[in-house]
């Protein structure tokens, strides 16, 4: 009962988790760091995922990853591997896990966790208790990444 009450309180505090969505702390990673189950139950929109990928205030994935499919964007980072053909290397659940919290798969990685809202040190106040992306944005990104095949 007690933990149930806390669970509710937490979801309210984060105020980003909508009904039917998995809260950031409730995401189930398998032993490899994959998340096989959708965070929202709503199919991802690859067109929006493409925007989230490039937007500097959202995914800003281009900061670190090259992606030939977004050739019209002028600056592609080189901190992580190029994501061309990424869907031929990883399955949907792997990609969801990597976006939600890549540290579960790549220990100590520089890649931020996009669906974690707690445990940060000195976060700026306006981001405190928040995730970088919403659950649906994660699903949209995964849908977009799945279009990047060899």
């Amino acid at each position: 009962m007690k933990s149930y009450v806390y669970g509710i309180a937490f979801a309210c505090a984060a105020s980003v988790v909508h009904a039917g969505e998995t809260a950031p702390t409730a995401v189930q990673f398998d032993e490899y760091g994959a998340v096989p189950v959708s965070l929202t139950g709503v199919a991802g929109d690859p067109a929006n995922g493409r925007k989230v990928f490039a937007n500097r205030k959202q995914g800003n994935c281009l900061a670190c990853h090259q992606n030939a499919e977004l050739a019209e964007q002028s600056f592609h980072g080189q901190v992580g591997p190029a994501l061309d053909g990424v869907a031929s290397r990883w399955e949907e659940g792997d990609l969801r896990g990597i976006v939600a919290n890549s540290k579960m798969m790549f220990e100590g990685t520089i890649m931020p966790a996009f669906y974690v809202d707690a445990g940060y040190t000195r976060p700026l106040e306006k981001f405190d208790g928040k995730t970088i992306l919403s659950a649906q944005q994660v699903e949209d990104l995964v849908a977009y990444l799945l279009t990047l095949t060899d």
Binding site: P112, T121, P123, L124
Partner: peptide, 8 residues
């Protein structure tokens, strides 16, 4: 020490 929401 890793800091901030981007945890770097």
């Amino acid at each position: 020490t890793r800091v901030g929401q981007l945890d770097m």
